[in-house]
Nucleic acid binder design. Structure first.
Ligand SMILES: [Mn+2]
Ligand SMILES: [Mn+2]
Ligand SMILES: [Mn+2]
Ligand SMILES: [Mn+2]
Lengths: 221, 221
DNA sequence: TTTAAAATTTAGACAAAGCTAAAAAAATGC
DNA sequence: GCATTTTTTTAGCTTTGTCTAAATTTTAAA
């Protein structure tokens, strides 16, 4: 029912790795956690005994339903604290991750739910990652920089980093703003520019510009 | 330079005990920390080796200057988080101590100083205990319920708990309010009532009333 | 399909922090 | 001042989480 800081760090990291990789391997996890493969194996045995893992020796592991539930709780705390640090204590989004790594292990549910309410139930952390709600549910919409959007996926501009006048002039000229709906038609490998289709036009934008435009899109589909 | 959660709990508890007791004994500390005397001795050796203690085996211990500095940092974090929990997350003052016991071990200085600023540099935690500033200085003024005020110590009413109309009627009748200056002349053992001297009068008040009137006073002198 | 390389697990050790039981020192009582 | 009680320390064990080195299993290459 209660987990050590070390166990929590393993659970969280497995969750994040298996989102992209499916099954997680001993070496991959060891590298992410800055530890040794032998230590990972030891911990996997323990988490397996606690039924938090599907573990087949030599063939990697994934989280059980219970393991996922716990991981989502940790991720919720991490991202809520990141949001708090950025939006209440005025930290930059690049500073908050390390601090949240510590705060995420204060696990009291009432505290976390009150913090959530205090912050106005935010949907995304400062890096655009979705914050699970108090029941561990995650919205399927993700916020990413435009150049990471998969091709042909309908999306909507939700944030523009770099607020320089040059940037804003360019956006105005291309008629891009918060709420603009678009989708990527084509990536050009030569200079990593993109062709994007908007409601009434199709235009090309540079990699630098795309990196500073954030969009939301449906995860599945 | 960096201390474990266990070391921090020992340092903080020694600090708080030695404030009232002077030198701290093995058994006293063990009881406060809900551990065994043998464990205390082990830890005292370690803290002594790190030069955080003045430790003479069999004769108890006090914190070194460095030990005090670290303890004040922990106490600062504890009390700031308690303030945050009460005043921002609407916890009752009786709920916050246990939560702060965990949060106090997130030690990043920038985080704590920003939290302090966010809260408006509060001087007291929800229990009336003073919050050390970012340099570890503590104001010498303490807030306590009136019945705990030492006799003949000039003090000032700063808070009235129990806001019932009966209570307020009584305060009005006796001409006591926030800011009233007073000192205790005499304790009566029979019913624990008190005789207090105010600017223009000397009156007697009951124990129940005194328990609900909080006063500030200078610690030393 | 056999062999070499890579990945994973096991074996054995260690440091931190706790415990119990026994020994030693200090305090108390007569 | 000596004996008894209380307090504190020491000795030896346990658990958690880590490590290195060796053994084992899987994978890839020849
Ligand atoms: Mn993060
Ligand atoms: Mn984040
Ligand atoms: Mn407290
Ligand atoms: Mn307090």
């Amino acid at each position: 029912m209660n987990y050590t800081i070390s166990e929590e760090n393993y659970l969280k990291t497995i969750f994040l790795l298996q989102e992209t990789e499916g099954t997680v391997s001993t070496n991959t996890l060891a590298e992410k956690l800055q530890t040794k493969p032998a230590s990972v194996t030891d911990m996997m045995k323990k988490l397996d005994a606690k039924k938090l893992l599907n573990y087949k020796p030599y063939y990697g592991f994934t989280l059980s339903a219970e393991g996922k539930k716990i991981a989502l709780g940790i991720i919720r705390r991490h991202r809520l604290w990141e949001y708090f640090l950025c939006n209440k204590l005025n930290f930059g989004w690049e500073e908050v991750h390390l601090l949240a790594e510590e705060l995420e292990h204060v696990g009291n549910k009432k505290l976390v739910d009150r913090l959530d309410a205090f912050l106005g139930f935010p949907s995304y952390d400062p890096h655009g990652d979705p914050i699970p709600d108090s029941k561990g549910r995650v919205r399927n919409i993700r916020k990413i920089p435009l150049h990471q959007l998969p091709a042909l996926r309908p999306a909507e501009v939700c944030q523009v980093t770099n607020q320089s006048s040059e940037m804003l002039e360019l956006l105005h000229h291309k008629q891009i703003g918060i709420g603009t709906k678009l989708e990527i038609k084509k990536f050009f490998d030569f200079d990593h520019s993109l062709e994007i289709k908007m409601k009434n036009s199709t235009i090309t934008i540079s990699e630098q510009l795309a990196q500073n435009i954030f969009v939301t899109y449906e995860q599945d589909l």
